[in-house]
Nucleic acid binder design. Structure first.
Length: 478
RNA sequence: GGCCCGUUGGAGAAAUGGUUAACUCACAUGCCUUUCACGCAUGCACUUAUGGGUUCGAACCCCGUACGGGUCACCA
């Protein structure tokens, strides 16, 4: 048996920026292709000329590339199956549409949108379950000189079954599908028609897409049947849902939805790639932090989940943090710099100070832009204590500890992390405090925080004057 | 409403007929570093939405119920 080489495609419509759901579709197709030594094709489905955005294609490709998803064939890389954008293939669709017309498998429909709308509403009012087109144009014998659409004549009593890669056997009955529009009045094909033609002509072997396409599958199957073409394997991945279990909609602001935004916020492409790969799929084994190469290696379509994938923001934060930790100090600074600049901190502080800031907080950063929030928390807050912190400072011996520390600091010439650290130890000895009761009071009295990064480093960043002022202020209140 | 799909711990999710239901996040506790964090260790589902059935045996198979979602365009 001759095994055909795997060819899969990602087929975005250029209506906007790369969305997280589309990125997921692209990513799994990519993984599947690479795993099977196949080809990954990006085809532009631009048949909705009204919704096309000028920069759409460019943006889609740009962020795909940013994520590390590279393609073998597309509008800018011919693989012999082009053209790769549907508006450049209109003559192809026209030919096939004409053939279906000639063979009586499709017909022209002269109904106006208004008529169709009324028809549908009437059906709805009568409580009909199926709001299908009445087929009245099927029986027309004249050929008026009016604009028309071409409808596919759905066969009677036919079952459309396919063995879904994710869901298993799925069956639709033809009676549940109305005669659908293949070619619009403007002569441009609809999605279901163009998609089936192109997938066949481009020798696509596997169609991996979102579950929202599952009811489109019977329509596409009708086209394959009509032309007696071999069908690709279909796989419908579960939808990505938000905290409310709703499909991610572009208006939903509880979740950041566009890849571009993640880039802007200082997420790392590898981390995002990793995170997205876990949306509706799970690797064998107990590791979840995986590189692109590891993911390609581990990828198995049998592991595709069939229950919805919840977008877990905590997990994204965790994963991105793991990747940020692996960054060099220089890379971390670079990641944070745009946000520090935007917040005006680069004007206030020296380059060295900024670098130290990033180094100190690198390990707890979930994304680049978070650096300014951490900055505010430690350096730009109103310096007040909560009840828990006050209680701690009122413990016996604390005031003495603070006094000793302040005295030692005042005598210090070189104020940096290396010189501060021994002073903390010395404070412990002189004030007879240790462990938690040494560090906690010092931390609270100087930063108004119970927890934080390495204390000497934080103090060094605060600067001698601020630290001593804060200590004075605290001791006065005790 | 019709059709299609789903339902495992606080969250993600593994396990498709056979011992105590993986793993990850979060949380908690302990150890370590004179603090915190990191790291390491431990704990966290008397049980797989629910009711029946099949079976020696079911999270896994069958039927019903409830709940959730998707889709029913001259959008893709």
């Amino acid at each position: 048996m001759k095994t055909m080489s795997v060819r899969v495609r990602y087929a975005p419509s250029p209506t906007g920026h790369l969305h997280i759901g589309n990125a997921r579709t692209a990513l799994f197709n990519y993984l599947f292709a690479r795993k099977n030594d196949g080809s990954f094709i990006v085809r532009i489905e631009d048949t909705d000329t009204k919704r096309n955005v000028k920069t759409g294609i460019e943006s889609q490709l740009k962020y795909l590339k940013w994520l590390g998803i590279d393609w073998d064939e597309s509008i800018n890389k011919d693989g012999g199956y082009g053209p790769y954008s549907q508006l450049e293939r209109l003559d192809i669709y026209e030919k096939y549409a004409q053939e279906l017309l000639d063979r009586g498998l499709a017909y022209k429909c002269y109904c106006t949108k208004e008529e169709l709308k009324q028809e549908r509403e009437a059906l709805k009012e009568r409580g009909e379950d199926k709001l299908h087109y009445s087929r009245k144009c099927l029986y027309r014998t004249d050929e008026p000189d009016l604009p028309y659409t071409i409808r596919f004549k759905v066969p009677k009593d036919t079952y459309y079954s396919f063995n879904d890669m994710v869901k298993g056997k799925v069956t639709f009955k033809s009676e549940d599908v109305g005669d659908w529009v293949m070619v619009k009045q403007n002569g441009i094909p609809t999605y279901n028609f163009a998609c089936a033609i192109d997938d066949h002509l481009m020798a696509i072997t596997h169609v991996l897409r979102g579950e929202d396409h599952i009811t489109n599958t019977p329509k596409q199957l009708m086209i394959y049947n009509a032309f007696n073409w071999d069908k690709p394997r279909f796989g419908h991945m579960t939808l990505i849902v938000n905290e409310d279990n709703k499909k991610l909609s572009k208006r939903d602001h509880s979740i950041i939805q566009f890849i571009e935004q993640y880039q802007t916020l200082g997420y790392l492409p590898d981390a995002l790639f990793n995170f997205i790969s876990l949306l509706g799929w799970s690797p064998k084994g107990n590791k979840e932090i995986l590189s692109k190469e590891q993911l390609i290696n581990l990828f198995d379509d049998k592991q595709l989940s069939n229950s919805p994938a919840k977008f877990d923001q905590d997990k994204l934060a965790f994963i991105n943090n793991r990747y940020i930790k692996k960054l060099s100090d220089e890379e971390a600074v670079e990641l944070c710099m745009p946000h520090l600049t935007k917040a005006g901190l680069t004007n206030t502080y020296s380059e060295e100070w900024i670098e130290n800031l990033v180094k100190v907080f690198k390990d707890r950063l979930s994304f680049g832009a978070e650096i300014t929030a951490l900055y505010d928390e430690f350096f730009n807050q109103e310096f007040t204590l909560d009840d828990e912190q006050e209680t701690l400072l009122k413990e016996p011996g604390v005031k003495e500890t603070l006094e000793v520390f302040k005295r030692l600091l005042e005598e210090l010439d070189e104020f940096n992390a290396n010189t501060i650290k021994p002073l903390i130890n010395q404070t412990g000895k002189e004030a007879n405090a240790k462990g938690k009761m040494l560090y906690m009071p010092l931390r609270v009295a100087t930063t108004a925080q119970m927890h934080g990064p390495d204390l000497p480093k934080v103090l060094a960043l605060l600067g001698k004057d601020t630290v001593i002022n804060r200590l004075n202020q605290m001791m006065k209140a005790l």
